[in-house]
């Protein structure tokens, strides 16, 4: 359409193009491709997000070690630099791939798409995707995961969910880690739960400590509940 008078010709050589395209469209398409792949292989993919140092990698190490005889796992590690986290996961005997984002502050669906073919993921397994430690940017980028887990620790402020509401509102599960340190820090568990529920009333909260092991059972039961459920769904549709 012509911009000058609205006629059908290209008056003045200027042309209006109605685009109406979501800026994250490409990422969302790629995320759906990943999701389709995970669904087809009955892989339960989790996107783990948090600020740096909340204990995502430690949570994974402990989970992979404790459940290695019961469930099959694979891990994608996202960090700006180094393969340190991948080395830690590798030491547990789990299949792992490291993505270094360089200057990037988040993982995106395209990075996951290009990483999964080389991993040869097993059917009926769990894939943990540990995102870059950052509570802002990863919130916007769907990776194709089934559930998003936000990990926080009791050494952080109890107003964190209100400071970073986008991350908390986009997550399904909130793991509150390091509860063995509760006697030593000023952290109001009721306040943090109330704040988290303000941003997302449907958020499930699991309190645990990777050091003492307290609460880990709840987390494990939650994980286990996810995989067999998918399997029974599959047998229904077949």
């Amino acid at each position: 359409m012509c911009v000058t008078c609205g006629c059908d010709t290209d008056h003045n050589d200027k042309k209006l193009i109605n685009v109406e395209r979501d800026i994250l469209h490409e990422n969302n398409l790629m995320a759906q491709r990943n999701r389709g792949y995970f669904d087809a292989k009955n892989i339960f993919a989790l996107n783990l997000v948090s600020s740096p140092g909340s204990g995502k990698t430690t949570l994974l190490e402990r989970t992979l070690t404790d459940l290695k005889d019961e469930l099959r796992f694979a891990v994608i590690e996202g960090d700006q630099q180094t393969a340190n986290d991948a080395d830690r996961i590798h030491a547990t005997g789990t299949k792992v791939a490291q993505i270094n984002t360089g200057k990037g502050c988040h993982l995106d669906a395209d990075m996951i798409f290009h990483t999964i073919p080389g991993m040869k993921l097993e059917e009926n397994s769990i894939l943990f995707i540990e995102n870059v430690g950052n509570l802002v940017c990863p919130a916007m980028f769907d990776l194709g995961e089934q559930d998003r887990v936000v990990v926080m620790s009791v050494t952080e402020g109890d107003d964190k969910p209100l400071k970073y509401p986008d991350m908390y509102s986009s997550a399904n599960i909130c793991v509150i880690n390091k509860i063995d340190l509760l006697p030593y820090v000023k952290f109001d568990m009721d306040a943090v739960k109330a704040n988290a529920k303000k941003t997302n009333p449907n958020l499930e909260i699991i309190e645990l400590s990777c050091t003492s092991g307290e609460g880990m059972e709840t987390w494990y039961n939650w994980l286990k509940s996810k995989v067999p459920a998918n399997e029974s769904e599959l047998s229904h549709t077949n």
């Binding site: 042309k15 209006l16 193009i17 685009v19 395209r21 979501d22 800026i23």
Partner: peptide, 10 residues
């Protein structure tokens, strides 16, 4: 919303 609505091009 986060979208490209339109372009005017020559």
């Amino acid at each position: 919303e986060l979208k490209v609505k339109s372009l005017i091009v020559t």
